[in-house]
């Protein structure tokens, strides 16, 4: 995803991020980006560039400028609150012998 350059005024149109759902029920996964001047063109360009072999049954297009992200230099402190709560994982707990499945 390109967030470091301003592409909104260029003659190639704004940048959009492409997310593909490979099958109904699955999560949308980021595939890459494309340039397009409006929503319709974004969807059509994404279809032509990213789904020539039935890679997806659905697409999301999001203007790259609308993406909010955590940078990797911030990520250790940003996600730190989760790392000391090991009791949130089932493996934290002891179970008496004889419990077959839980």
């Amino acid at each position: 995803m390109s967030t470091t350059i301003n592409t909104s005024n260029s003659e190639q149109g704004p940048l959009w991020e492409v997310f593909i759902q490979s099958k109904p029920g699955q999560a949308y996964k980021h595939a890459g980006s494309i340039h397009a001047f409006d929503k319709e063109m974004a969807i059509e360009n994404a279809r032509d560039v990213y789904t020539r072999r039935n890679e997806g049954t659905s697409l999301w297009l999001v203007p790259s400028s609308e993406i909010v992200a955590v940078s990797s230099s911030e990520s250790p402190s940003f996600f730190e609150p989760a790392s000391d709560k090991i009791y949130r994982h089932p493996t934290f707990y002891n179970l008496p012998d004889g419990v077959k499945q839980m």
Partner: peptide, 14 residues
């Protein structure tokens, strides 16, 4: 695909 990867480095396709 490659131009969009290259654009992430701060240079536009143009």
């Amino acid at each position: 695909y490659l131009y969009s990867a290259a654009e992430t480095l701060g240079v536009s396709r143009d």
